[in-house]
Structure formats: structure tokens, C-alpha cells
Design a protein around this nucleic acid. Structure first.
Lengths: 221, 221, 221, 221
DNA sequence: TATGAATGAGAGTTCATTCAT
DNA sequence: TATGAATGAACTCTCATTCAT
């Protein structure tokens, strides 16, 4: 299933090999992780071959094992590495935001659409969905580093809006998951069903902002 | 050289294998599908071994291939088999429902919570999320069998509500994905994060019904 | 390799089955052997599936095992059974032939062309070529029942011709294999290379009769 | 369920495997082909297990697949590798031969007796006879690589002899198969019937040269 | 006697991991 | 440190054989 090209390795070939690209260890580690994100996301954990990761990273297969204990460690390293940077920006923006909550939500979802839906990082979300249950430590880690921070941001936004009298419902405070849910759908649709039925996810997310604000009792203060 | 007998080995064969007979084909098919759901859910598509499916179903490995062409066909059978009755029931209920849309949505989400979130079937949703991109045929199949039918149901509900003057917004008609989104979150949360932070998904879904109806301009007619 | 159609067995089907074709045991045995000749010849011993033999014989797989101990016994039975009848006719004809040796050889090769090249029996020759070494008992049996008798016939013909003064060389007496050799080529060519380069094997065999007679010093007595 | 580690097992692994290194790729390829010739010859194509080829070649099973795409490619490699040099030598010798055609044929058949009958290569001829029909690609390949070249050599010899006035018949030009036929018999006899009735195949082939030349109208020019 | 669903050993092939260079 | 040929366990799928009916 999913027959891949099996690049036969020309054992009698004597093609001059470049050997040891000059690249400092940290850069090489990055190259491997970047490659791994793509390949794991495309093929899942079990479906990914170390060969492919190595090829995409431009290193030899053995080199992977100098940087990561084994396939599992590489996978975990990948998630650890890719998770953080998105939310820091959001937290800062929310903390310092001046406008009203409608504007804020629009900014937040625009940011997330760009960073989590229309970027390779969306693969990470899919990876967690697909493999998370098999790697509980990872799921925990992801919860700590991403999910709970994300929920925190959403709660902050809701609390702020309530305080400012912009909304009347505390539904988003109790279930911030309801605010973020369409993002999951967007990721999934882009990955799986876009070819069956295209979907303007940006339009959808903006419609969601309207819908949810109205649902929460929005009123321009 | 190492004559490997054409004749089967184990001439003293004393292994007690009961040769589980008398189980009508349909029951056996069910047993296999039930086993497959568990095992696929635990290990993903690529990570699942036919051996394990067979063991859990209590049949020999070869038997699987009497009922399903290959691993992929087994997976498809699984999806079809699990999704079809759930959606069939929903379609019927929606078609014949007498009450108002709030009651209808409550019924629908209660049904989905029971059948798709708090049931082993939830694994299927995760499976599609995790593996779908790699098996476009599967994703297409899932789109046809599940997603498009689900979106159809939601559009029907929204159209009905607009007609009856219960809501004013067509957002749910344009993006039924927004209506269903929390279901995905529920599935994922139950699978991945429940142990980090328990979530009352039923409460969440009912809150969602309130939120979204209000968002759509709900008014008791 | 050599993917076959894997007729899936419709385990949920309830198609009425004919059951127990009325056919006396000997006829059924024949049906099985006839089927086996074709299928073994087409696929070799290891490449033949009992399923295919059963299907072609029009019996259930299990029935084969009522008539033959196992696959090997079936194969051996097949060779035993198919070997004899050709040569008896030849021996008689040669013993009673009245004409000159050229006519006799023409008759013999015409007979062999019909019976051993352009008939299913050619499969038997190929089977022996392909599998004989792996079944020494069979090779011995085939030698006794077919080869040595065939060599005997050819020696008789040569001796008769020498006696009658039609030829001068005893080469055919010492190496009757040289007389029969083109028959092997004919069988092989028809089976393997006809589609690459068609060959009129009948013409070839008649040319051979001319060539070999002249080589043996033919002279119309 | 039965977590089968992604991590390789055998943590106490004490099995002494030498990891047969240092053998240049070409030598290893040869070792594999030599082993394959034996094993294929003994068991036929379908009857051969890659395991056995690997064991006999002294490499791990996976190594076979570094050198050959799959079983079929291994078989083709075998045929090509064995046939090419034999025919190459013959073509050269024929092209540059100075003596008369009787001497030339003697040389050719001596070469073939040594290289194709009294050598493991004879198994290849048998293999093609036995398995060729089932693998049309192989038969075609064999026709192109071996048979048509062989027929070409024989036609060249016949044409040369006619030109030089050494023979008068064009039978060998029309049917070079008649010239080569005894070689097939020799191969088969050595393989199947030698133990029932020894045959001096070299003597037979030399007798054939006499017989066929006389048949073609030989006359020392 | 005849059936054919069920069995499970084993086939070809893949790929995570190792280690001589 | 980096390489990639070599390894062999584990995978999916096949098919000779059995046995309840």
C-alpha cells in the first residue's frame, strides 16, 4: 500500500559523493526536524520511513541516529520543537490589544488561519489528532504547551469582553473549546476534503467570529 | 537443499485449535469489524497488523481475507459500517421531526454525542483525521459516505429553521461546518486531553446549541 | 507475482449450490487428472494452486483430497496416467510398417507432431523438463514408460533401415536422441517463442527427416 | 494491545552475526547470482525462496533487494549474466574463424558442451523450458538475449558454408533450430535420465556434427 | 461422498537500526 | 562526525490442507 519509489541504491555505482555538508550541528538538527515535520505529517508515525526523513533533510540515514535516539525520539523532538512559537505572539498581542473584542477576535483568527491552517504547522495539528493517543506523553506535552495556553488566551479574551460589557454570556469562558472548534474543522477540511468540495476557510472563520459574538450577546459598548 | 516439504509440517500436531465453526457469516463479519475498529483505533491504519485484528476477532489470519479483499477494504468496510446506520437514523429523525429547531438540534447533538463521541466509533473520526490525507481514496470515500451526508443534514435543518422563521442568519446554511465543529473538538478532547483536563462534552455540546442558535438569530416563533 | 483473480468467495452469499454432480468415481478421477495436466503444465508444480485444479475439474477443493493424498500425489498420478497411450500405437505401426524408411519416419513424425506437439500432451513434456529433476521417481518412471520405449522404437527403425540397406550410418542406432531432438525444440518453441518468432514446426520436422536421412547415408534401395 | 515496539527487540542480543563486510559490490553481486543459479535450478522459479538464495549467498535476505528489485529481476539478472558471455565468445570466434566449417562446428559444439551442458548453466536452459511459459516477459527476454543471438550465429555459419561451397542444402539456414536441437536433448538427458541410462553427450554432439554436415551435403572444398 | 469456510505456516518484501569505514 | 550497505524481524497476503456439515 502506498508503494513508494524505492530508490534503488546503485551498489556498483561509484558516483562521487559530496560527504559531510559543512553545516553546524544546530542547523543540521533543525534541518532534520523540519524534514521530519513534513514527512511525519504526510505519512503518520508508522507510515514514515527514516529513509525519507533523511533524504528530505539532505543527510544520510545513519546521521539521524546521531541526533535522535530512534524514530520515536525524533517524533517527540519534532512536536516539542514545533509547538511553542505561535502562542507567544498571540499572548502578547492579546495582552496589549487596545481595540474592541470583535477586532481582537478577527486578529486572533487571522493569525491562526495564517499560522495554523495555511502553514506547514497545520500538519502538527493533524499529527496530534492522528497519533496523539498512541503517544500519551506527547499528548500531555501538547496539552501543556499548546492547548492549555490556547484555552487561557481565549478565556482571557472572554473575561475581558465580559468586563467591558461587550458580551453577556459566559459560555466562552466555560467552554473556550467552542470558540476554537472551527479551526480544527478548517485544518481537517484543507487536508482531506478540499479536493472533494473546496471551502473558503478564511470566510468561514470570519463568519464564525460574527456568529459566536452574536451568540455571546455582543453589543458595541 | 533444505527441502521444505510441500507437505504441511507438524506431524505430531497436538495443538488444540477449536476451529471456531458455527457462527453465521454475518456474525463473523461483525466480529471482524468490531475487532478492526478497536485495533485500528489503537494503532492507526499503517500501525495495525492484520494478525492483531484476527486475534482480537478470534479468527485465523487467513479468514480476514475471506471477508475483505485486503487491509484497505477492511478499513473501508469499517467506516461504511459504522457511519451508515448513525447517519441513516439522523436523516430519518430530521425528516420526520415535529418540534422546533432548538429541540431538533438538541436531539441531533444528543444522538451524535452518544453515537460518535461516547462510543468506540469516535476512533473512526480520529482515524480519518489522522490517516485520511495519506489515503485519498479513503478520504474521498469518507467524504461521500459521511461528510457530505452530514453536511446535508445540517443544511436541511438550517433551511427548515429559516423557512419557519426561527432564525434569521444563513451562516449555518453557508457553513454547516460551523455547526458541527464542536463535535470534532469533543472527539479529540475525549481522546487526547481528558486525562489532563476533564471536559463535560455533553454540557459543552448543549451550550453550543444555545450559543449557535442565538448566534443565528433564534426567536421562538 | 502472477497475480490471479482471487475469486472472493461471497461468504454472505446464499446462492443455491448444485452439490454432488452425479458422476461415477472413475470419471471424476479422470476429470481431476485432465484438469491437473492443464493447470500443472501452465503453472508448474509450485505455481499450481489446488483451487485452480478443483475449479477446472468442476469439483470442490476438498474433493481433490478424496482422490489424491496431497498435491504431490496428484502430480505423480497425473504423469503416470498421461504417459503411456501414445507409444503403444507407434510401436504397433512401426512393427507392421511395409513401406520404406523415409515413409516410416514421415509417418512417425507426423504422429508425434500431432500427439506430442500440437496437443495438450505437449504440456507433459514441458512438465518433465521443468519439474523432473525435483521428482526423481517421476523422471525414472518417465524414462521407463516413455523415453526408453521411444528410444527403442527409433533403434528399431534404424536397425531395420540398415538391414534393408537404406542407410549406411549407425549413428541413429547409437544415438537415437539425435533423431528425436527436434521434437523437443518444437515443443519448446511452440510454448515459449512462437509469439516472438513464429515457426512452422511441421515443416521443420519434415525438413529434419530429409536432413537426417541424407546424413545417415540414405539411398533408395 | 500487544504493543509491538517500534523499538527493535532482542535487547540482550548476543547472537554472533559477523556482518559480512568487505566484499566489493561486484563480488557480492556475483555471489548472489551464483547462489541464485543453484537454488533456482533446484527448485524452479516459483519454488525458490529468497531466504534460501540469501542463505546460500551468505547474505541477509534484505541484501538481495539492494542488488535486485525483486525475485523476477534476480532471475532475469541470472539469465542475462549467464548467457551473455557464452554467446559473446561464440560470436567472436565465429566471426574470426579461419578453418573449414567442420572444424568450426566442432569448436562451437565443444564450447557449448562445456559452457551450457557440463556447467551449472545448463540449469538455466531447463529453467526456461520449465518456467518460461508462465513468465512471458522472461521468455521474451530469453528470446532476445539468448535464442535470437544463437540462431543468428547458426545462420551465419550456414551462410558461410554455403558461400564457400562446403554444403549444398539451405536447411540449416531455414531451420537453425535443427542444428542446435541435440543440445537441448543433452541438457535434459544429463538432468533427468543420466542416472537411468548414462549418455556420452560429447560423443553424441560430435556425432551430430558429422550427421548434420553430411545431411547438408558436406564436401571438403 | 462432497463441500468450501477456516486454518496457519510461510512466502516475498520492507525498513528501523547498526557499524565498518 | 558522517556515511550508507547490510541486517533480519516483522509485515501483508497466499494457499495446501482439514473437517463440520
Amino acid at each position: 500500500m502506498v508503494k513508494r519509489g524505492t530508490t534503488r541504491s546503485d551498489p556498483t555505482g561509484d558516483a562521487a559523493r559530496p560527504r559531510a555538508r559543512r553545516l553546524d550541528p544546530e542547523a543540521r538538527r533543525r534541518a532534520i526536524l523540519d524534514a521530519a515535520l513534513i514527512v511525519f505529517a504526510e505519512n503518520g508515525f508508522a507510515g514514515t520511513r527514516m529513509d525519507d526523513v533523511a533524504a528530505r533533510a539532505g543527510v544520510a540515514k545513519g546521521t539521524l541516529y546521531l541526533y535522535f535516539e530512534d524514530k520515536k525520539a525524533l517524533f517527540q523532538g519534532l512536536v516539542h520543537d514545533a509547538a511553542d512559537p505561535v502562542l507567544g505572539v498571540l499572548e502578547e498581542r492579546v495582552a496589549s490589544f487596545e481595540g474592541d473584542t470583535r477586532e481582537l477576535l478577527a486578529v486572533v483568527f487571522a493569525h491562526l488561519a495564517a499560522q495554523a491552517v495555511h502553514s506547514p504547522r497545520r500538519h502538527l495539528v493533524k499529527l496530534m489528532m492522528g497519533e496523539g493517543e498512541r503517544f500519551p506523553e506527547l499528548a500531555d506535552f501538547y496539552y501543556r504547551e499548546v492547548v492549555s495556553r490556547g484555552m487561557g488566551i481565549l478565556r482571557t479574551i472572554n473575561a475581558r469582553a465580559l468586563e467591558r460589557g461587550e458580551i453577556t454570556s459566559d459560555a466562552g469562558l466555560r467552554f473556550p473549546q467552542l470558540i476554537i472548534a472551527p479551526l480544527l474543522v478548517a485544518v481537517m477540511w484543507e487536508s482531506l476534503f478540499a479536493r472533494s468540495e473546496p471551502l473558503d476557510t478564511t470566510d468561514m472563520l470570519m463568519t464564525h467570529v460574527d456568529l459566536v459574538l452574536r451568540g455571546l450577546g455582543w453589543r458595541k459598548p
